[in-house]
């Protein structure tokens, strides 16, 4: 199922400079896996060594935070947009 993924500036160098990438997947995990298949350099930014979603990443499925949709198990539909954004913190 085709899904559009929007990448933040910090990840674009790892995806040949692309801001928007088309991938396939029925879940967020599959979307990420296809993203990594196309751009292997993204792997460490998306996944922890244990295979979980990276905690420094904010991920939205359309307007919804995937933390409330099952994280990597979130269902993704046709024409959905996945937006990745870096976590922002400091002090």
């Amino acid at each position: 199922m085709p899904v559009e993924v929007r990448l933040p500036t910090v990840l674009r160098p790892l995806a040949s400079g692309e801001a928007v990438v088309k991938v396939e997947g029925d879940t967020l995990r599959e979307v990420f896996q296809d993203l990594v298949r196309q751009y292997p350099g993204l792997s460490e930014s998306l996944f922890t060594p244990e295979g979980d979603m990276h905690r420094h990443l904010n991920v939205f499925l359309n307007d919804d935070d995937v933390r409330y949709l099952g994280r990597l198990d979130a269902k993704v539909g046709a024409a959905d947009t996945v937006t990745l954004m870096p976590a922002v913190a400091g002090g």
């Binding site: 307007d63 935070d65 933390r67 937006t83 954004m85 922002v88 913190a89 400091g90």
Partner: peptide, 11 residues
């Protein structure tokens, strides 16, 4: 001393 932001604010 610290800040974190609501991800939806960022979106």
């Amino acid at each position: 001393r610290l800040y974190t932001v609501e991800p939806k604010d960022l979106l």
